[in-house]
Amino acid sequence: MTKSKKLEFRPDDYVVYPAHGVGQIISIEEQEVAGFALELFVITFEKDKMTLRVPTNKATEVGMRSLSSPDVIEQAMKTLKGKAKVKRAMWSRRAQEYEQKINSGDLISIAEVVRDLHRTDDQREQSYSERQLYEAALERLTREVAAVSGNDEIAAAKQVDEVLTSRAA
């Protein structure tokens, strides 16, 4: 394994882990597992009070990535402004697709879920599962926007909300 590959992520870096969203690498540690020395990224997800250990050689394979660039954030905001695309498929099929998009770790896909499931006050009520998916996607988007801009989540949530409400107007 080359050194440059290994140092793609460093302690204190914020990273996006597809299944959990934004976390922070707190250290890189060696652990012996089944007689093999493994180098692991120790990632903490403050909000979820969770710590994850990811083998350094598997990080990119599992889709772990650096935070999005400001350009990608801008693109995600443009995506939010778009018209909701709701397929005529059964809810279970759509829910599965939304879940896959959220867990892909791809910010644009997550923004699409937020856009497609966003409801204004005068629109019909969301089902429980729709609301769950919407909130999961919104939280992932907001956390990454906050981490990239260096703002807190409240400011990021306000920014995302303003984009969504400007679309509805």
Rank of each mutant, 00 (worst) to 15 (best):
A59Q: 00
L107D: 06
N103P: 05
R65Q: 11
M77N: 00
Q100F: 10
N57L: 13
S104T: 03
T60Y: 01
D106H: 08
E74M: 04
K85D: 06
V113P: 04
V62N: 02
A95C: 03
S27Q: 14
W91T: 01
K78V: 12
V114T: 07
K101L: 10
I28F: 03
E61H: 00
V72K: 15
L67H: 04
Y98R: 03
S69K: 14
M90F: 13
M50G: 00
L52K: 08
N103H: 15
Q24L: 07
I25L: 06
G23V: 10
S109K: 09
V54W: 09
V72H: 09
P18G: 09
A59V: 03
K87F: 11
A84V: 02
R115A: 05
G35H: 06
G35A: 07
E30P: 01
A19N: 14
L80G: 01
I26L: 11
E30I: 08
V33Q: 09
N103D: 12
K47D: 13
Q100R: 15
D71F: 10
L107W: 04
L80F: 05
V42R: 13
V15W: 14
R115F: 07
A37T: 15
S68D: 00
K83C: 01
I110R: 09
G82L: 11
Q75A: 06
N103C: 07
Q100T: 12
K83G: 03
A59Y: 04
K101P: 11
L67P: 04
F41P: 00
T44W: 03
G21F: 14
L52M: 11
E30Y: 14
T44A: 15
G105K: 06
L67N: 01
K78A: 06
I102E: 13
I43D: 00
N103K: 15
K81L: 13
I26W: 01
E61Y: 01
E32S: 15
M77W: 01
Y17I: 09
I73N: 03
E74D: 05
G105C: 03
R93I: 12
